[in-house]
């Protein structure tokens, strides 16, 4: 499988990374180089093999559904590029 310029633009938009037009072609080449190399996995017989879902054989631990943390909005907001009155500020998203 390989990607074309339109795929690269679509992937970049899905990943929310703006890509100058001048970078599309080099990126297409690099991605296709990597995908071509990955293709060797098609030689592996994987029929009937379970995909790995947990590195160590363990059940994810459960805990009681209760509030265990919080109450420090100032700390949460301390690194925000733009914040006001305990809110993160972003460009307008609704008219």
């Amino acid at each position: 499988m390989s990607v074309d310029a339109a795929d690269v633009r679509r992937i970049a938009h899905l990943a929310r990374i703006s890509l100058d037009e001048s970078r599309v072609e080099p990126m297409r080449g690099e991605i296709n180089g990597i995908l071509g190399w990955i293709e060797q996995l098609e030689e592996v017989k994987v029929e009937g093999v379970e995909p790995m879902t947990s590195v160590t054989p363990m059940k994810l631990p459960m805990r009681k559904d209760e509030v265990t943390d919080g109450g420090y909005a100032d700390k949460v907001l301390a690194n925000a590029p733009n914040a006001d009155d305990n809110f993160f500020l972003v460009p307008k998203v609704v008219e």
């Binding site: 938009h13 990943a15 929310r16 990374i17 703006s18 890509l19 949460v76 690194n79 925000a80 590029p81 733009n82 993160f88 972003v90 460009p91 307008k92 998203v93």
Partner: peptide, 23 residues
Amino acid sequence: DGVRYGLREDGANIVGMYEKTRS
């Protein structure tokens, strides 16, 4: 994403802001 911490680059709208910040 430029909202909670780190770098933010302004864009024409919120998606533009995300895309420019991450680029």
